[in-house]
């Protein structure tokens, strides 16, 4: 008797919960399994999702920070399935090992949208939104070519400070820049790993300054932190860089503080890696809700920021793209 009573009570509770949910206007339930909070970039990505998938916009967001632990992330997704989310967004910490959990999502009929990083061993997700790192690298090369022409620089001897070995951003940016370098016959003197950190960039640059003293005129850093480290190392070695300096310093990511460096003429250019994937995801979800067609692979729009106005547009992959000459307003308006 007690058991039956308990079951009846439980049923009543579940039903009333359902009733409450039905009583209000049904929001779209979205579960987001984020990588972690390791950088300003990541924080901006999280913030963007929380702003877009707000109650005012008709969403109910369940956010899980996996703190760079892929087991936690998989658990989070299984929880989302149990909670009966309408959509699941995931920024996969690792590229592989996704087939099982994505099959579970498919069986439950929940569309999965992957953002930023990629999944390579399964195609059971519905859309991907992120950056085209290859294009970032190509844009960097094309801009450098145009800039060198405008400044009358004939020979390019470049040093590259790579990001973490094996990361998608590292591979894309390295390959993209190398493609242009090979085409134009530039010399890439060396390319070493700086682990996307300031300390790494500093140590690699310190070594470069000794190995290639007086031989290089371009330094490509694959993120802003590395470029900050490279600045310190070049200061110590007495090498001038940036606008009017001996060395052209270029970076990727475009954080606000980094853009300030570009505006101040310490760096020559910064190529954006846009963390704001959420607005694009929002569009895809709206299209799915309406039953319309949507693009399964979307690149977020990205801008190229420079210090001087010698080059105002470049041609990347046969496509004309604008180059943004920085002003204080642009830097101040930067959300992260």
């Amino acid at each position: 008797m007690k058991k039956i009573l308990a079951i009846a009570l439980a049923l009543a509770m579940v039903l009333s919960l359902g009733a409450i949910a039905f009583a209000a206007e049904e929001p779209i339930y979205v579960g987001f399994a984020q990588v972690g909070h390791e950088s300003d970039w990541r924080t901006a990505s999280t913030q963007s999702a929380q702003d877009v998938f707000s109650a005012e916009n008709g969403y109910e967001l369940s956010f899980v920070d996996a703190d760079n632990d892929s087991a936690v992330q998989l658990d989070a997704i299984r929880n989302f399935i149990q909670q009966g989310m309408d959509y699941i967004i995931v920024d996969p910490i690792v590229e592989t090992g996704w087939d099982a959990v994505l099959t579970e999502c498919e069986d439950a009929g929940i569309p999965v949208i992957v953002i930023d990083r990629t999944i390579t061993d399964s195609d059971k997700f519905d859309a991907w939104v992120g950056s085209d790192f290859m294009v970032e690298g190509l844009a960097c090369g094309e801009w450098l070519k145009a800039y060198a022409e405008a400044k009358g620089i004939e020979e390019i001897n470049a040093l590259v400070i790579e990001g973490s070995t094996g990361a998608g951003a590292t591979i894309g940016r390295t390959d993209g820049f190398k493609e242009i370098a090979d085409r134009e016959g530039w010399t890439i003197l060396d390319s070493q790993c700086g682990d996307f950190t300031e300390a790494g960039g500093q140590e690699v640059m310190e070594s470069y300054c000794q190995s290639y003293a007086g031989q290089f005129n371009v330094v490509i850093c694959q993120n802003d932190n590395e470029a900050a480290g490279a600045m310190t190392a070049m200061d110590q070695a007495g090498i001038t860089y940036g606008v009017g300096g001996d060395v052209i310093l270029v970076s990727f990511d475009a954080n606000r503080w980094a853009l300030q460096n570009v505006l101040d003429g310490k760096w020559n250019a910064d190529f954006e890696c846009n963390p704001m994937a959420a607005p694009t995801v929002d569009e895809i979800i709206k299209a799915m809700e309406a039953g319309e067609d949507y693009e399964a692979e979307v690149y977020v729009p990205e801008s190229w920021f420079v210090a001087e106005d010698d080059v105002t547009s470049i041609e990347v992959n046969g496509e004309e793209q604008e180059v943004v000459v920085l002003t204080q307003e642009i830097v101040d308006a930067r959300p992260y």
Binding site: E162, T165, D190, S191, Q192, E203, V204, S207, S211
Partner: peptide, 14 residues
């Protein structure tokens, strides 16, 4: 580590 930098060993195999 410094030797690796000096010899320019690529970061993937270092």
């Amino acid at each position: 580590t410094t030797t690796m930098y000096n010899m320019g060993v690529s970061s993937a195999v270092a």
